[in-house]
Design a protein around this nucleic acid. Structure first.
Length: 420
RNA sequence: GUGGGCGUGGCCAAGCUAGGUUAAGGCGCCAGGUUGUGGCCCUGGAGAUCGAGGGUUCAAAUCCCUCCGCUCACCCCA
């Protein structure tokens, strides 16, 4: 038997309402903030990501789905959403549009990871990117959008964490200080941290081992070592966030796993403890477009995982609207009635109603059972008697009452919600 | 990449520790109980090479080995 590939999932009809709910809220949010939707291909040249996301990152180093196409080019399934948006921005000359250019996307994302709760090899991200404006008010706008997304979805008890990780001027200075701080204390720390010290010292702050957390707690903070420009940006951001009334928390250990982030980083996390709990994550990436070969262009954005949003919606018991129900099931007796039932179903659909004939070759009882199990509010009964008189019997399934109506009036009666 | 838990009809699952009747039960599905009436109830039916392969044994869902898959956590991330 074939199975869906590891880390992927079939989304069955019963699950669809969760996805539709998330997508509808996200799309509405994008429009409300004046963002335009951008769809990019699921695969791109591998270089786009190795240069954009950063060669040393886990995503590029060991999680990309890379393949060679028949022309010999190295392609990669999209492992994140921001680099393709920046590519499109450059390719279509969007820097000639009024800045900032506000874009959002909703797309599948692929990473070769070991799956677990809330983590998949194919997942779907809603994200927004505001390109071409370095002002901290745009950072605030993006943070607000992320927060509102979660609120619009009905999620509660979430934490909004923000931090600044500086820029290419001040971060290296800070990193040296950080390394100096850790150098004398590394002995008592975990194996991972020992390798992080050289590889990615910012990550030291994020370690969850108890011993390491104690050391991290006393570590020098990035926000105390920002250059004047970054410090100003950070101060203004906080001012705007306060003005908006967002209940954020400065989290000095918050860092990001993608190389392109500068200055602002933020995350939204649910109350439950746990590893992969982040449901929205983003920040500013002023060097990304330049790293991709474009002119220096600032940008800020966030991504959020549809699967994780849905997971939290379920955990918190958020009421999600049902899919539009079927209006009517047409039950019939005999071959002649079957013909009429099929024609009637067709006519009802033309009138904008959802209707379907019951399964063929079943007893009336079985057909009604079928209508019941599908949750149809009405059953339309077509037997010999009805056929002879050119009428149908409309049965209100909830009330258990029925009446006859001329065949041609069925759509109007159902659409009008006329009771029986 | 590292470590834990788990694989029995579509789903939930008993049985496995101390091998031995046609591998329980529930949900769902189909049919009947009403020669034209659903939900509740009753009756019946279909559906499983017990994850796969190998081994031990007179006999394996049950014991042993290998592999595969699912899952949770670490790492990392949405």
């Amino acid at each position: 038997m074939y199975r869906a590939p590891r880390g992927t999932a079939d989304i069955l009809p019963d699950e669809q309402r969760y996805w539709r709910y998330v997508e509808a809220k996200a799309e509405a949010l994008g429009r409300r903030f004046g963002y335009g939707r951008l769809d990019t291909p699921v695969f791109e040249q591998s270089d786009l990501f190795t240069r954009g996301v950063g060669e040393g990152t886990d995503i590029v180093e060991k999680e990309m789905y890379i393949f060679q196409d028949r022309g010999g080019d190295s392609m990669a399934l999209r492992p994140e959403g921001t680099a393709p948006v920046c590519r499109a921005y450059l390719e279509h000359g969007m820097r000639n549009l009024p800045q900032p250019v506000r874009l959002y996307y909703f797309c599948p994302v692929f990473r070769y990871e070991r799956p677990q709760a809330g983590r998949f090899r194919q997942h779907h991200q809603f994200g927004v990117e505001a390109l071409g404006d370095a002002d901290p008010s745009i950072d605030a706008e993006v943070v607000e959008m992320a927060w509102r997304l979660t609120q619009d979805l009905g999620l509660t008890n979430l934490s909004l964490l923000v931090n600044s990780i500086g820029d290419p001027q001040c971060r290296p200075v800070y990193l040296e200080e950080l390394k100096g701080y850790y150098a004398g204390r590394i002995d008592g720390m975990c194996q991972d941290c020992k390798s992080r010290l050289e590889r990615n010292p910012l990550r030291l702050l994020d370690c969850k081992q108890e011993a390491c957390m104690a050391v991290a707690g006393e570590a020098p903070r990035m926000v105390d070592h920002l250059c004047p420009e970054c410090r100003g940006h950070w101060a203004e951001l906080l001012k705007y966030l306060q003005g908006i009334g967002l209940d954020y928390r400065v989290e000095h250990r918050l860092v990001r796993g993608l190389d392109y982030y500068t200055r602002t980083v933020f995350e939204i996390q649910p109350p439950e403890e746990g590893g992969q709990s982040t449901i929205c994550g983003g920040g500013r990436y002023d060097g990304l477009i330049e790293a991709m070969g474009g002119p220096p262009t600032p940008g800020v954005g966030f991504g959020s995982g549809r699967e994780r949003l849905a997971l939290n919606i379920k955990r918190q018991g958020v009421i999600v609207p049902d899919d539009d129900p079927l209006h009517a099931v047409i039950v019939y007796l005999g071959d002649e009635a079957k013909e009429a039932a099929i024609a009637l179903a067709s006519r009802l659909r033309s009138e904008g109603l959802s209707a379907l004939p019951a399964a063929a070759g079943r007893s009336l009882r079985a057909q009604l059972r079928y209508a019941n199990s599908l949750g149809a509010p009405y059953a339309i009964i077509l037997g010999e008697e009805e056929l002879n008189q050119g009428v149908v019997t409309i049965r209100d399934m909830a009330k258990g009452e029925q009446r006859t109506a001329p065949m041609g009036d069925v759509a109007a009666e159902l659409a009008g919600g006329v009771g029986v």
